[in-house]
């Protein structure tokens, strides 16, 4: 995945990209990628809790860790990292939040797992592994040390 990402960065000639992980699993994946790519910019974390589209259905969940974007967002090439890409709603919320911090030059989406079943027109640029899950199956990343994937039936 790191190699794919490195190739992509090279192909697009992105200098000094800003990597941002989506809490919580996306941050764990981003931390590993960040180490392997040895990016100069600090790693950002995104708490999309307040950008979710299901507030009117489930309310807010208290979450201690706020969004931390120490780097400038404006005109930057962003690498957005999440653990599982599913409906696409989380990524939409993350994009909205990032845009409230500034106007990035580009956003590259990297996910560890693409399990399909999209509800929004969102695709990842870099995918670790694609899995087809049956209805009622959930995939979950456990972490941070070690990172393991778990498939459960509900």
């Amino acid at each position: 995945m790191a190699q794919q990402l490195r190739a992509r960065l090279a192909a697009r000639a992105l200098q000094d990209p800003f990597m941002i992980g989506i809490q919580t699993g996306g941050v764990w994946v981003a931390q590993q990628l960040y180490r392997e790519l040895q990016l100069p910019a600090q790693l950002g974390t995104l708490n999309i809790n307040f950008y979710r589209d299901d507030f009117t259905r489930i309310g807010v969940h208290p979450m201690v860790t706020p969004t931390q974007l120490q780097e400038r967002v404006n005109d930057r090439d962003i690498i957005l990292v999440d653990d599982v890409l599913y409906t696409g709603r989380t990524v939409r919320a993350a994009l909205n939040e990032i845009f409230d911090y500034g106007r990035p030059a580009s956003v590259t989406l990297a996910v560890l797992v693409d399990r399909g079943c999209r509800e929004l027109p969102i695709q990842a640029d870099v995918v670790g592994v694609s899995v087809a899950l049956a209805a009622g199956e959930q995939i979950k990343l456990n972490g941070p040390q070690p990172l393991t994937l778990e498939i459960t039936k509900t």
Partner: peptide, 17 residues
């Protein structure tokens, strides 16, 4: 604690309400 970061955004708003 989670809301403290909103003040750092260039658009100081979240769409919650």
């Amino acid at each position: 604690e989670g809301f403290t970061s909103v003040a750092n955004q260039s658009v100081k708003k979240v769409p919650l309400l």
